[in-house]
Design a protein around this nucleic acid. Sequence first.
RNA 1: GCCGCGUUGGUCAAGGGGUUAAGACGCCUCCCUUUCACGGAGGAAUCACGGGUUCGAAUCCCGUACGUGGUACCA
Length: 507
Amino acid sequence: MSKVRVRFAPSPTGGLHLGGVRTVLFNYLFAKHHGGDFIVRVEDTDQTRWVAGAEEYIFDCLKWCGLEPDESVLHGGDFAPYRQSERKAIYRQYADQLIEAGHAYYAFDTSEELEKMREELKAKGSHSLQYDQAIRMGMNNSLRLLPEETAALLAAGTPYVVRIKMPANEFVSFTDMIRGELSFDTNTVDDKVLLKADGMPTYHLAVVVDDFLMKISHAFRGEEWLPSAPVHILLWKYLFGLDAMPAWAHLPLILKPDGNGKLSKRDGDRLGFPVYAMDWTDPKTSEITKGFKEIGFMPQAFVNLLAVLGWNDGSQQELFSIEELIEKFSMEKVHKGGAKFDYEKAKWFNHEWIKKSAAPDLLSLVKKVMESNQLSISNDDYLLTVIELVKERCTLLTDFYEQGKFFFEAPVNWDLPSVQPKWDAGKKSFFESFAQALQTVEIWDVASIENTFKALATEHNIKVGELQMIFRVMLVGSKMGPGVFVIAQAIGREDSIARVQKALQHF
RNA sequence: GCCGCGUUGGUCAAGGGGUUAAGACGCCUCCCUUUCACGGAGGAAUCACGGGUUCGAAUCCCGUACGUGGUACCA
């Protein structure tokens, strides 16, 4: 087998959807598993849908995910250009070739005429509203027109498109790596537009031409492309021969969690979770759509959760590093059916990744979180200690602020409702003595602080438990966080004493 | 409407003729911790339906239902 080469072909029309990232991921994993190349080709043939900044944003997302292409607009490569708008001239000759061979034709129908045609079909109660063999001889195209008429129209500069001429009574079949043998009746497929009036190819032509020219060995895309697969297969047959055609796999869709249909950005807004990989700002409306990155996901977790949405290796393993995924991934194990996205499970993956990450690997990420909350970090070693102490209770990276801020700042208000019912003169006197005792603790560590605390409690004849809760609220402000004595040790002697004394004035 | 694809607990899923039908998320109970998590022990909950084939179907076949995608000079 020749070298494995796969491509992801986004169109720069907006934010990068989770389903898009998963398509990237499956492409990437397959390529790397087989020692092949991963190519990103920008499909910007629709100028009306082009959005400023979208292309750059897509590459930023891939970078964040760690799924870097071997070849692309950004990375270069032997098959440049990688932007279809820059390849415009290439497609025309293949369209001409198809026309000459009788596999395609010129169509001069205006959009009004097309609309009228569909209206009429509908009125007649037709089952199909397609531009197909049933109606094409009644339309304004080179199939019906005399050659002279066509030539005259072309000479006059009449706008036209090129359509594929779907053959009658044929079955187009191919093997899908996920679904197996698939077969389509050409009678049910329409004469798709190949070249638009502006001279740009549609997806149908461009994907076939570029996959050939770029020596793509395996073509993976979403399930929504299945119905037009016969068009692509036929184009391969007419243009380059079926032997050169890449192997296909149509990936299952990612569905909305609650009801029906493909997951969309709207569902995220509605249900309160991100759908895009990173924050996306609409250049027209300046509206920001939240991304997984900014919400607090680790890229490893994001990649992990996407990988197991529609794929698993048959074992019970759920946590995979990218290296393990590359090793274990196989297209045959990808499911046929779509999967509903479950944000709760997504968060669980992130939680697991935070727990299993070593503090130094979390350092810069957590530092950013702290700093974006106006908490400046001057001591990395101290932050490392804090990370180690609180990471198991952080589901999102952004949780590190709530879970860790009291290590840096004394509380300004306290959970008084929990303290006051238990607060009395005896407790007050205990803490006064305790603050003093802390001055003289010789070695400032957990055991010494705890021993001092407990000995003093016994002396004052008060139950240790109640005292501990109050001590916690003094240090933290609320009933949360790691062990109290661990916190005391971490924040240090001066700070611990100061917090107790300050609390004493407010309780 | 027409064409295609799909269907194992609420969700992700293993299992591809004989299983008490794994596991995970979430939920509930308990233990640990006089905090919150982590961790641990339990629990409720599933093969869409109807026909075949077979000694035996979650597994194979056919229907039906439901879901979903396409049906653009969008990708």
